[in-house]
Structures are given as structure tokens and as C-alpha cells.
Design a binder for these strands. Structure first.
Lengths: 341, 341
DNA sequence: CTGAAAGCGCTTACAG
DNA sequence: CTGAAAGCGCTTACAG
């Protein structure tokens, strides 16, 4: 098949290139009969417009970038990422955008690929998975060059940038309130990294719930985790000496690790110690452990991130916008029933 | 910053556009002094060439696609994917290619995005994760349009297409031989899906090892799995009545699920039943269970897939090429020591 | 509703 | 080693 161009279709159909271009772009002002004729010729010939030529002429590539920055070492273990990517990919397919993926391991890599990301004629906009301190550089650069950007997860400096997030403070508050309501007194938390906004926000919700009910905030019941199963395990080992009767873990994976440590130490779940996780990925319920947890709509999160970005691309990205999604407490077996005080 | 073009740099430097283009593309025939001058101007101005214009003129986009077809439902649970993507992304960064990701959930989606994938002026080549029956359509189409393609995992119809794979037959053979050597007699296997070449190949290696040592192949010791933890768990439950004393699982995740089922049934690992997994992802060793397994070099797999593809793009993709990577048996704690016969 | 023409920002023979 | 020119395949005012 000799590579066809618009020109060929025009000639075949006896119209101008302009007209073919118009039907290609669904421009309304084309006589129906002509449109059909052109469409038929396109169909018959299998003609496909040249993407780069289109981009060059129209200044739109219909591709968006997803940047997963250096901080994303848990890319490998955290089910968050596949789900996020699923949502993003799905929305891209749906809206006829293409997704370019940038996985950046190191700062050097970040700087190396920056030209490709920021260069003209490639991306219409970018999604940046963030919430980590280290990601400010790339966010700042994107803003500098006025590329439409949506950050997934509240960034540290959030003024002037559009982002989407779940209401982490409220969600954590809800989880911990649940534990309090069940009569737990020494509620510990295994947090996300303090260098991330998720980590900080969920901790804040935890503190807020305790304070509201007049419970003390004890530093030795707060241990920083890293969103991995292993991290949860070790964090729990550090908590055990302080005898918590409940743990709010900032991710399901950490909750599972923590439960493993608790069981190893001979504790019965939920009788002696209760657990609430965060995420509600399948692993929370498919295991022998049926985890009480906070359900995050991660796929939906990805979808809405894309839709927000497309909106910014098509209708201007100033002023910055925010989308906050809700979460839901899913009660299963790791908290037990209410205790008497 | 007013959007700069090649023209601007040329004018600033007092040379022609051709020359600027040449230094941009590292063309050798430019006087060193001129090259430096142009480079300096580019640097100073922050000029970046327009990607689409480049592609249009040169017929090279320096972007490759990664297609994860419909069959990839375990995208969410199997650590294989993040590792693969990591390798691919790393190699792309290294070789200055961009990665476009196509996650296709359904056949309709597949057909919907096909034009974007196959369209001119977008991708230089394509990686297809495969090994599943359902993926033949997309592979066939890519071949039809003469797009350079590398399939990750041997496809069902492998004539005429380049692919990269690990030596699954040999690896499985090695795993099972190890079990035989330790004196196990009733060795079962939890396979991958029979609709996938990985599933079939690992099963073949299993059978081959048994035959070689004169052990019978018993259909009730062969259960089809689906590469998930849950799948391994249920497969094991089906195996238990037939009293295997060892299980070769076609993935670590399935091995873990199978071990869970065995323990629930009161069996001691490895005393009463031994397990070998496949993959050697961190979960194989970071758990309380230290799994004996086959190490697959998945990141390396991704890297080499990209490098093979780039080679095909730059030096022609006929005749088809093959890359087969080796695996390694990693002995940990789930097989125990040799038994006396 | 339609066409002629200019233009998007590069690369690449060709000639010198 | 360098430049003038053609061309890559579209889109988009502009004019009618």
C-alpha cells in the first residue's frame, strides 16, 4: 500500500484538500452528500491522516504525558499504580488521547527527559503523580513553560497548580473515629512517608479524630511507614512495646505487614488489636485477612485526572482547579465489634 | 518567551537553517567553530526543536508504543508488569525514545485505538506484551502494516514475528528436576493459563523433567492457574486430595496462594510438601515465607525488548529476530533438604 | 458550503 | 563545510 495522503483522497473524490480536511475534523460546514463521498473514499482506501503533520499544522497532539517521578519506588509493590494507570489509560482511550509514560528513576533522568516532555509539538498536557517533596522541581518547570498540568495528589506547594486528590484528612478521621467508637483506647498509626502530603494528611486526620474525642496524641504510637508490606511489618514491631489496641495504617499493604507482625507476636486480631487500612484494593479482602479499610476510588481518580487535564487543555488552565474525591469506610473483620469501655 | 524556531537560531548565529539543523542532529560535517556558536545560541535561548515538525520531515518520531492487550487482567496483581515497564521505560530514557502506553481492556477498545497505533507519523515501532491467544489479532495487524514490532513473550503464531522471551521450558525443567533430586515423588504443578504460551511452556518443562526421570505424568496433579494469589490458593485446594508432596507453581504469587492453602490444610512446608515458584520478585523473599523460585530477569527483559525494537527500527525488521533470556534457580526454604528415597 | 494559498517548523538531497 | 530550495502532510483564515 503506497502511503496515502489527504491529497490522494481529495483527487479521488474530486474535492479540495480543505474539504477532505474538514470532514476529517468533523467540521460542520460540509454538504452531507460530499461528506459521505469523502468518508467512503477514506474507508475504502484505508487512509489514515499523518499524526505529526496534523500536530504541526493544528498545534495539538492529542497526547498527554504521565510523569511518575523519582519518588515512586513503590511503583513496584503498591497496587495504587496499576489502578491509577488503568483509569488514566481508559479515559485516554475514551477521549481519543494517547498516553505517553515517563518513569523517572533519578533526578538525572528527570533532567534528561525534561526536554522531551516540555518540547513543543509533543504533549498537550501532563499528569504528574506526586505528593512528594522531590517532585517540586518538575512541577515547577511545567508551570514555568505554561504546559497544562494536573498533579495527582496534592503537591507540597499547591498554589497556582491544578490538582486532584482524595480527602485524606477526612478519610483518616473517619477511620480513626471508627476505632474510637468501637472502644479502642490506644490507637496507633503507621503513616505514609512524612515527605509526602498523603502521609502528612492522613496523620492529620488521625490526630484530629483523637483530639475531637479527647484522647491524647502519643508520639510513640505514631510510626512513619513507607507504603510497603515490609515497612508495615517493621513499623508494627516498633509499636508493639507501647501496647496499642488498634492501628490505623495509611495503606492496606502496610496494614497487612503490621498484622503479620502482630500475629507473630502472639496477638489476636481483632480481639486484642484492631486494624484499619487504606485503599481497599482486592488484596484487602481476598486474603485470609478481611481488612477493614478506607476505599479510595483510584480508577475513578485516574479517569477524572485525565478529564480535568483535557478540560484545562481545551479551555485554558488558569485559574488552577481542584478536584477532591470522596472515600468510604469499608467495615470487614479486623476491628471486631464494639467493646465496653 | 516567544516560541523560538530553527529560523531564529539561524538568524542569531548568522548561518542557514540547514546548518542549525545539522548541529541539532549531530551531523559531522559542520565546522567545529560554527557548531560551538550554534550550540551556544541554542543553549542561551533555551530553544527546543518542534517534535512534530521533526517527525514530519524526517519520518521518525522516536517514540515507541507498548501495547498491553486485553488478556492482561493480572496487570493489577502481578509484579511482572511494573518490572517490565520499569525496564522498558529505563531503556527508552536511555536511548532517547519516548514510550506511549496502550492499555486495552476490550476488543472494542483494541479496535478503537488501532488507528492511533498504526497511523503514520506517530510510532516508530511497537512492543506487544503477549503470549495469549486473544492477542493474535493485534499482532497480525501490526505485521500487516509493516510496523516494526517486538512481542514480549513468545506469541502463539511466532513465525515471521520478532519476539523476546525467557526459556520457560528449560526453567520449568530445572525447577522440577530440583524437586526430583530432593526425593519428591508426587510433584504437582499449578500452571499458567492454557491460553498462554508461558502457561504451556512451563507445563512442558514440568512434563519433560518428570519423563526424563521416569516419573509418571498424572493429570490430577496438573491444575490450571491464572497467575493470581487467589488462583494459586484454589488450585492447591483442588490438588490436596491427590496428596502431592511438592508443587511447582508457574508464578510466585500462585506459589504463595498455594502455600496458604497447604498450611490451612495443616501441612508443614517443606517437610510434608515442597514448593517452587517462578519470578523471584521481592515478595518471594521478603515474606515470612522464603520461596525457592526461578529468577526471571524481568527488568532486563524490558530493556532488551526495547533495544531489539530500536535495532529493528533502525536496521530493518526482516527477517524476524529472537532473543531468549536465561533464568536461574534460586534456592531458599520451601523445598527443604534431600529426602532419602 | 468550498477552494486556493499560505503556513506549521523542521530535514534533506542537490549544488557548490 | 555550507546554503537555497523543495518537501514532509496537514490546517486554517480568507475570499467567494
Amino acid at each position: 500500500m503506497p502511503t496515502l495522503t489527504l491529497e490522494d483522497i481529495a483527487r479521488q473524490t474530486g474535492v479540495s484538500r480543505s474539504t477532505v480536511s474538514r470532514v476529517l475534523n468533523n467540521h460542520p460546514s460540509v454538504r452531507e452528500e460530499v461528506r459521505q463521498r469523502v468518508l467512503a473514499a477514506i474507508e475504502a482506501s484505508g487512509y489514515q491522516p499523518h499524526a505529526a503533520a496534523r500536530t504541526l499544522a493544528s498545534k495539538r497532539s492529542f497526547t498527554i504525558g504521565l510523569i511518575l517521578p523519582q519518588s515512586v519506588s513503590f511503583f513496584f509493590t503498591d497496587p495504587y499504580y496499576p489502578h491509577l494507570i488503568k483509569g488514566i489509560a481508559q479515559a485516554c482511550n475514551q477521549h481519543d488521547y494517547t498516553l505517553a509514560l515517563f518513569l523517572v528513576g533519578t533526578r538525572e533522568e528527570e533532567e534528561k527527559i525534561f526536554p522531551r516532555i516540555s518540547g513543543k509539538g509533543f504533549l498537550d498536557g501532563v499528569l504528574i503523580q506526586s505528593g512528594h517533596h522531590g517532585d517540586q522541581w518538575i512541577i515547577g518547570r511545567m508551570l514555568d513553560i505554561k504546559m497544562p498540568v494536573v498533579v495527582c495528589g496534592r503537591p507540597f506547594r499547591s498554589d497556582n497548580v491544578s490538582y486532584i486528590d482524595v480527602d485524606n484528612i477526612r478519610a483518616a478521621h473517619q477511620a480513626v473515629s471508627h476505632l474510637i467508637r468501637l472502644g479502642r483506647q490506644r490507637i496507633a498509626t503507621i503513616t505514609g512517608p512524612f515527605a509526602s502530603t498523603v502521609g502528612l494528611d492522613r496523620l492529620e486526620g488521625y490526630k484530629k479524630a483523637l483530639q475531637e474525642r479527647g484522647l491524647p496524641i502519643q508520639e510513640n504510637l505514631i510510626v512513619e511507614g513507607d507504603f510497603t508490606e515490609e515497612g508495615g511489618y517493621y513499623a508494627m514491631q516498633r509499636l508493639l512495646p507501647h501496647q496499642p489496641d488498634a492501628v490505623f495504617a495509611a495503606s492496606d499493604l502496610m496494614a497487612l505487614g503490621a498484622i503479620r507482625a502482630a500475629k507473630e507476636a502472639g496477638l489476636r486480631v481483632p480481639e486484642q488489636i484492631a486494624f484499619v487500612g487504606f485503599d481497599d484494593f482486592p488484596l484487602a479482602s481476598s486474603n485470609e485477612i478481611r481488612l477493614t479499610t478506607i476505599r479510595q476510588p483510584v480508577v475513578q481518580f485516574g479517569i477524572q485526572a485525565v478529564e480535568l487535564l483535557i478540560d484545562l487543555i481545551e479551555h485554558g488552565h488558569q485559574p488552577p482547579r481542584r478536584v477532591i474525591l470522596d472515600t468510604e469506610l469499608i467495615i470487614r473483620d479486623t476491628c471486631g465489634a464494639a467493646r465496653r469501655q
